[in-house]
């Protein structure tokens, strides 16, 4: 379906990557940890390594939760667009196809705020 309008209705998307000063948007949600009420939005460099994303960006945002320090990243499950995704820590986001506005979901089986999902 298309918008019904009195004229040819075409407008550019507002949030394209060129607006973010060389960075891209990336969303990351951590399942079973509702202390963070919703998944988070980040701006990150496409040239950042995945290990930097985890070690710096995500640790800044999620590190205040006591479960964060307990995560064994060799055993976690990542989803991208709802499908299993195996990130490579030493590769950049761009190198492993993590694009502008991709949504990652981190699942840490066994860690769920001591059963509260919080």
């Amino acid at each position: 379906m298309a918008v019904k309008a009195l004229y040819d209705y075409q407008f550019p998307a507002l949030d394209t990557q060129d607006k973010f000063h060389g960075n891209q948007l990336l969303y990351v949600g951590w399942d079973d940890h509702f202390l963070f009420a919703a998944p988070l939005a980040f701006t990150v460099s496409p040239n950042a390594k995945f290990s930097e994303l985890v070690g710096q960006t995500l640790t800044f945002a999620y590190g205040r939760h006591p479960d964060w320090a307990k995560i064994d990243f060799s055993k976690v499950v990542w989803l991208k667009s709802g499908k299993p995704f195996q990130p490579e820590m030493n590769k950049t986001l761009a190198e492993q196809g993590i694009k502008h506005k991709d949504a990652l979901r981190l699942q840490t089986p066994g860690l769920n705020g001591n059963g509260t999902n919080f």
């Binding site: 918008v3 550019p12 507002l14 949030d15 948007l25």
Partner: peptide, 17 residues
């Protein structure tokens, strides 16, 4: 109506811009 909502002024994105 994707043509309409791709123009949404989302505050979080605007902050990051």
């Amino acid at each position: 109506e994707p043509e309409k909502y791709i123009q949404a002024w989302l505050p979080v994105h605007q902050v990051y811009m």
